[in-house]
Design a binder for these strands. Structure first.
Length: 104
DNA sequence: GTCGTGACAGTAG
DNA sequence: ACTACTGCCACGA
């Protein structure tokens, strides 16, 4: 029998917490990792439990960090040594999914 | 059981 | 490159 939806939260936290430093996962990838397509559902969990998981290691499929904490995510990425791609002006940045995308 | 919301994804213009 | 619309899933009231 399938465990209650409450497990969905535990699965998301488990996957995100399992992401090693210097690596990132897309919301859709996290959802796929737990066998769901709820990319938005993952974001919901982060909004509520993100304080106990490395949410900054979870980025969008475009390589941009969470729309609500992008500025904060950069600080963590730089501290973790995550491969970042900066624009020539250095005004915008994005995660190098080609190198940082981590799939369990 | 239905409606609205959301730290998204993918395609089209 | 950007914005806009739609689609999918999970949760709260």
């Amino acid at each position: 029998m399938a465990q209650p939806a409450d497990d969905f939260v535990s699965r998301v936290l488990d996957v995100v917490a399992a992401i090693p430093p210097g690596r990132v996962m897309a919301y859709g990838d996290v959802a796929a990792a737990i066998g769901s397509r709820a990319a938005r559902g993952v974001g919901q969990v982060m909004a509520y439990y993100g304080d106990q998981v490395p949410w900054w290691r979870v980025v969008r499929a475009s390589g941009h960090p969470a729309v609500c904490h992008e500025q904060r995510a950069i600080e963590h990425f730089r501290a973790e040594g995550t491969p970042l791609l900066w624009s020539r002006d250095g005004t915008v940045f994005r995660v190098d999914l080609d190198a940082a995308r981590w799939i369990p």
